[in-house]
Design a protein around this nucleic acid. Structure first.
Lengths: 337, 337
DNA sequence: TAGCAGAGTACCATCGATGGTGCAAGAAAA
DNA sequence: TTTTCTTGCACCATCGATGGTACTCTGCTA
């Protein structure tokens, strides 16, 4: 290893040292040397010199010339979340396995940040973009398609690019019907199950509410509009919902469908203050998963989205260079008892 | 917005359209047009045309020419972990705030993957690299410094680049002494506190064990070497440790110092099977944090590393272009009751 | 009315890698 | 011995942006 002062070693430096032309060095370094009928001995010799000099290819220059970056971008709402970070983890592995270089940007569910992040990724010449949980996937698709970059939607669907999402409706049907079973098993006279969390405008929340309603209706429950509380994704919100519910009804619901672990955190905290005994008599289900949360409540139902399968499907689409915007793949989540 | 077929708009396309030279367009686009005495009217006119044509700068070309990428790389063990993902989140925000483009790669605590990831980042011409929890930060520092790229160590220290880490020793002293208080408060005759989790070769684990020992010794405890079980980071391992302890001692320890939430998960699961009552009589402390874990045990002690402060310190070093490898900043973690 | 400053812009080499084309030397065929 | 391949490499334009230099105008002074 030679001691380099500041500048990087280029194929020109190697060419000078080996007294051959830069293009020969280049073809040896990028593997196209057989096509150029460079002799094996020369190739080995050049590789050795390059190694000694600590050469590594400047991918900016290479991308510029080849008009291919092999970069695949992904935007997602945030890193510090179990669901999204497991998506990052698997996304990265799968991209690497395909020789793609993954770049992940978080956008805080803000459409402006999303657009900004996407534009920056485009400036770095990404070849594809995966939009995870994007608030406005169609706008992003439009921007990218103008630049000839294909997009894919994950977790939240769009109408301008293929989408892979969880089957929220089916998962919600399953979770709700199990909640109903548990409520019935306890044999209370008055049966009431409430839905807490999420945003009413959010596609996934809408689908889950649809499943919640359908399941309740088919079990003969009467839907009370006040029992669907899409109070958002912040922790404090769900606590306020419970406060209000208790004040209005003088008693707690028989079952709770919680829309995310973030809301669940608030609910558990609320019950911690109220006394845990009450919580144990309530059937509790959460459309999200957390390993510790499962240990808090004696029989908490949790839905875990099948992230490995979602990403397998996503990369199948990418491998097949699928561009049909009507494709919507829904992956069944798992229910955990 | 013009309909572009496939190729991107370049300054040459704009120049042709506006019937001016590419360099004029370029200087308008990168903000150096005042230096070139381009008239304001011309600049505005050119900007408008560029906007209409959907121009966006090719940063690969720009970086190549300027020999500046404004990319800052980070490697970290994994994404799907509360601690590391919160590091990613804040790292990204702070990098963006400085006009840097963050690229984060996970390396699964594998030194070969670490080296591979770093080499790839270097090929993309990163300007700095942050090594988070790297198993061999000095090797990475060597590789990067050869290429003229400064590195910084986070979470685990190195000897070839400035480091910012948690004050594991101090945190461990605090956690252990609080465990001792609790054990004493219960007034058991025989007092025994065990350490479970982590790797014996791992710097942070070593420091925590040092604090654990010192705290116990200064409180008059006798250290039993069997009570320090560095069984690794997998969940099943900590359960096996408890099994063995119970078999050898016919009773449980009075206190447990758990080295991470991963190990804690195994321990909680073990107690779930054994019956929770036993857990409640044991003083439990964990050198890691999880919001739900805090709700599992009536008075679980948790140490939360101060990620915001660690990253502030890290970026202070970056802003000051600090290169002194002897710098080691230790940030006190918080103890949560 | 040449001389000169400064405003406003164009020209061109450059960053590092790539791949089409050209071209010499040796081998094989005629 | 001349023609025809084949081997083995060098030359050079190119990707898009950048910035030093050169150049052409005005307008003004001596």
């Amino acid at each position: 290893m030679e001691n380099r002062s500041s500048k990087n070693v280029t194929i020109y430096d190697i060419a000078k040292r080996a007294k051959i032309s830069p293009s020969t060095v280049g073809s040896v370094m990028n593997g196209t040397w057989k096509k150029r009928r460079i002799s094996d001995s020369r190739a080995i010799e050049i590789k050795k010199i390059a190694d000694d000099m600590g050469y590594s290819m400047n991918l900016q220059a290479s991308s510029l010339r080849k008009d291919r970056s092999r970069i695949i971008g992904m935007i997602l709402p945030m890193h510090d979340n179990r669901y999204f970070s497991s998506i990052s983890q698997i996304f990265e592995e799968k991209a690497r396995a395909r020789g793609l270089f993954p770049i992940i940007s978080s956008t805080l569910r803000d459409p402006n940040v999303e657009e900004e992040a996407v534009r920056l990724l485009l400036n770095y010449q990404v070849e594809r973009i995966v939009c995870t949980g994007a608030t406005d996937p169609d706008n992003i698709a439009k921007i990218c398609h103008n630049r000839g970059v294909q997009t894919y939607n994950l977790d939240l669907p769009g109408t301008k690019a293929p989408s892979v999402i969880s089957d929220n409706y089916q998962g919600s049907l399953t979770l709700t019907s199990e909640l109903i079973n548990r409520v019935r098993a306890k044999g209370q006279a008055k049966k009431r199950i409430v839905f807490i969390g999420g945003r009413a405008i959010d596609h996934n929340t809408k689908e889950r509410i649809r499943g919640f309603r359908d399941s309740l209706v088919s079990a003969g429950f009467k839907i009370n509009e006040e029992d669907i509380q899409t109070c958002g994704y912040a922790t404090g919100k769900s606590e306020a919902v419970l406060d209000k519910y208790l004040k209005n009804n003088k008693q707690l619901p028989d079952g709770i469908f919680v829309n995310s672990t973030i809301s669940l955190e608030g609910i558990i905290r609320w019950f911690n203050l109220q006394g845990f005994d009450q919580l144990n008599s309530i059937a509790l289900g959460c459309f999200d998963w957390d390993p510790f949360a499962a240990l808090v409540h004696p029989d908490l139902l949790m839905i875990r989205q099948n992230v490995p399968k979602m990403l397998s499907s996503l990369f199948d689409l990418i491998d097949q260079e699928e561009t049909n915007p009507n494709i919507l793949i829904q992956i069944s989540p798992d229910i955990l008892f």
